[in-house]
C-alpha cells in the first residue's frame, strides 16, 4: 500500500476520533467517569478542538492528501 494512503488512513481515523471525543455524549450518571466528565465537559471539548486543529495543520502540511508526493 502506498505510504501516502497509509498516512491518509491514519489521518482520517485520528480526525474521526477527535471529532467523537469533542462531542459531549455523556450526561450525569453514577459512573465515576461521567462524574468527572460532566463538570469538565467544556474543557474536554476545548482540548479536543485544539487537537482537531493540530491534526488539520498536520494534514495540510504533510499527511493529506497529495498523492503526487508518493
Amino acid at each position: 500500500m502506498p505510504r501516502q494512503s497509509v498516512k491518509r488512513g491514519i489521518w482520517l481515523l485520528l480526525v474521526a476520533l477527535v471529532l467523537f471525543i469533542g462531542v459531549p455524549w455523556y450526561w450525569p450518571s453514577d459512573s465515576a467517569l461521567d462524574g468527572w466528565l460532566v463538570p469538565n465537559w467544556v474543557w474536554v471539548s476545548l482540548a479536543a478542538s485544539w487537537l482537531f486543529a493540530g491534526l488539520v495543520v498536520w494534514g495540510a502540511l504533510g499527511a493529506w492528501p497529495d498523492e503526487d508526493r508518493d
Binding site: L19, V23, S45, A48, P65
Partner: peptide, 13 residues
C-alpha cells in the same frame, strides 16, 4: 468551534 475547524478538514479531502 469544531464545525469551523471541520470546514478546513473538509477542504483537505
Amino acid at each position: 468551534l469544531h464545525s469551523m475547524i471541520a470546514v478546513v478538514a473538509g477542504y483537505l479531502l
